[in-house]
Nucleic acid binder design. Structure first.
Lengths: 350, 350
DNA sequence: AAGTTATCTGCAATCGTTTTTAGCAATTTG
DNA sequence: CAAATTGCTAAAAACGATTGCAGATAACTT
């Protein structure tokens, strides 16, 4: 039952192990036919571990995400998987945004993978130091660790996207605009808050610190943040929510508080979803191509694995688009386009 | 730069490699202090591949799912990951429901993993034959391959869940009840259709073949199936949709056709979602704990890896629950319960 | 046919561990 | 005090592949 080894094949054919090995590597070999047959007869499969030990390669790439059940990260992973094709297999790790888990995971990864696609929790994560030790290339996706500039990254254009969202609310006549932000220690949390503030400034709307609440990218966090905003003496009339999960939480809070969207509170989210269209009211969001982000990250990583760091690190960005539906009070224009929604492109990748 | 080996450590301390190895395995050793120091100084990390080659174990478990971007499968994976803890790492493979890809993946997995958690596309998949060759335990989740009874499985109670859904519609006065089913070649597609038919039979409602349409578990498939139902001379007044994605598609079709839910068409889905509550109207669904399913699968698998097949294969089932919201015309009772929704338990796991 | 070159082959070393074996010293036992 | 037991240790043999080297065929030259 236990698998045959290369030596079994060699013995059966009457050649040396090296000849079989060379046959397997595609070299021209005299008894290729009988080797082929013996391999089939013995159901021989090369032992990957032995091969890896010799070659020093593993044929594996790790992907560290906060939580695979977040559809956004699932899309990234899927994109990465597709881009990896048959060359590399994926190892998946969810960290729950816990830097300690990230550190432990990276430590365990040593010797198991040839590269890492990494969505870190915090820009100043302690795991930084660990990276010095480990000898595989890393590509950051969606978030970066600021001190690790030597690695590549594939981000969304958070600033532009957030400005676009805020501007959209302003154009609908809102001035009391809140922002439920992600952790300021995270790249998108920080970037989107910056974009929000920049848009306010540009329209000469004074910043109200009560309206900028920092949360944690979770449903519950979004719910609580929204409840907080509703409890304010001077309620905002519109809110830009910093990610998909917090948007769900915010909407739950609004529904529970019987606050009408968009009349009493306009809402715009970050990151689209298959169901955004069917929510009541259909949700206007900033969207970007997570699948593409994952695919870009993987191809960048594979390049590094192949060619090393002879070229300077890349900083890729994918577009953020505004998908107008009805949660900001926009009329139902989107029916007129063939894609069932109106998309305004914002920025180009670079 | 390249990692130090156990021999470097041994040399530095002045002992043999085996002594260092024994120290690492927790045996009592005379120079343990200096070995500890040398390991730290040299930043020695054991080479996993060498270790795996020697032990024949990989410390890895593969998870094969149709598509990780389907939140349901993402939950399964997450549950499996949590249950694996620090003992095993996960290798992820999406197959797009393509049996050929499944087969190729399983073939590649040989020697890379100690076990497999597997959501196959079809019950009669050709990949069956492959399994004979490979020497790791397998646990099926959500779907099985019928000829492989020797492996464990963790399924949902599809029949009961589907009956519950259908009965719910019947109790709301519907008799013209359609079912958009998944592929009949798949376990849940078949099981849920059976449950649907059983419930009709029990209520002495005649089966209408136009009302049982087989689709493919995708958004587009659900959309097209619903469009087909709407085009019928005698439209059904209610529909039970066989999975989450097809439900989204069906709702899109209804929205696009301006058919009111639940007045003109009652809808009940299979599998809950964080957003189901916020959809218009809030979606009544059959729900089961996907996270638990994944966790059970993993713990079953780890048991097999540890103890082998001395015990007969297990067939676990998780409960299906009815979550009543408003898409079937139920009044808004759910507010009265503390969990924000009314849950009727259906069956117990066995 | 003999010399030269091009192909292919087996041997042995190597990758970095773990584990078995046997040996040595120190300690306990009769 | 000799004998038996204990507690570590080093040396060597795996684990299953790949690869440099040198020798053996085979295939061309002239």
């Amino acid at each position: 039952m236990s698998n045959a080894t290369i030596s079994d094949v060699a013995k059966k054919v009457g050649v040396s192990e090296s000849t079989v090995s060379r046959y397997l590597s595609g070299f021209k070999v005299r008894n290729s036919e009988s080797i082929k047959k013996a391999i089939k007869d013995l159901n021989y499969r090369p032992n990957i571990m032995a091969r890896n030990l010799k070659s020093g390669k593993t044929g594996m790439v790790a992907v560290i995400v906060p939580d695979i059940s977040n559809p956004f990260f699932a899309s990234i992973v899927r994109g990465a998987e597709v881009a990896a094709g048959d060359d590399y297999m994926l190892q998946l790790i969810s960290t729950n945004d816990d830097p300690d888990k990230e550190e432990a995971a990276i430590r365990r990864l040593n010797g198991r993978v040839d590269g890492l696609i990494y969505v870190p929790a915090k820009e100043d994560s302690q795991a930084i130091t660990e990276f010095e030790d480990y000898a595989f290339p890393v590509v950051f996706v969606d978030r970066v660790i600021s001190n690790l500039r030597r690695f590549d990254s594939v981000l969304a254009d958070n600033q532009t996207g957030a400005s676009l969202a805020t501007k959209h609310l302003i154009e609908h006549g809102h001035a009391a605009i809140a922002h439920i932000a992600g952790p300021s220690a995270s790249t998108p949390g920080k970037g989107r808050a910056e974009g929000y503030l920049a848009a306010l400034k540009k329209s000469k709307i004074e910043r109200n610190n009560d309206y900028l609440v920092e949360s944690d990218f979770t449903v519950l966090g979004g719910y609580q943040a929204m409840m907080g905003l509703l409890a304010l003496k001077k309620r905002p009339s519109a809110v830009f929510v910093g990610n998909n999960l917090m948007t769900i939480g915010a909407l739950k809070a609004l529904k529970e508080s019987k606050v009408n969207v968009p009349d009493e509170m306009a809402v715009i989210g970050f990151d689209d979803h298959e169901l955004s269209d069917l929510v009541n009211p259909p949700l206007t969001v900033i969207s970007r191509d997570a699948h593409l982000q994952g695919a870009l990250a993987m191809s960048t990583l594979l390049e590094r694995i192949r060619d090393g760091y002879q070229f300077p690190p890349k900083q890729l960005k994918v577009d953020s688009n505004l998908v107008i539906r009805q949660s900001c009070g926009s009329t139902c224009l989107y029916r007129k386009t063939d894609s069932d929604k109106k998309i305004l492109s914002s920025s180009t990748s670079s």
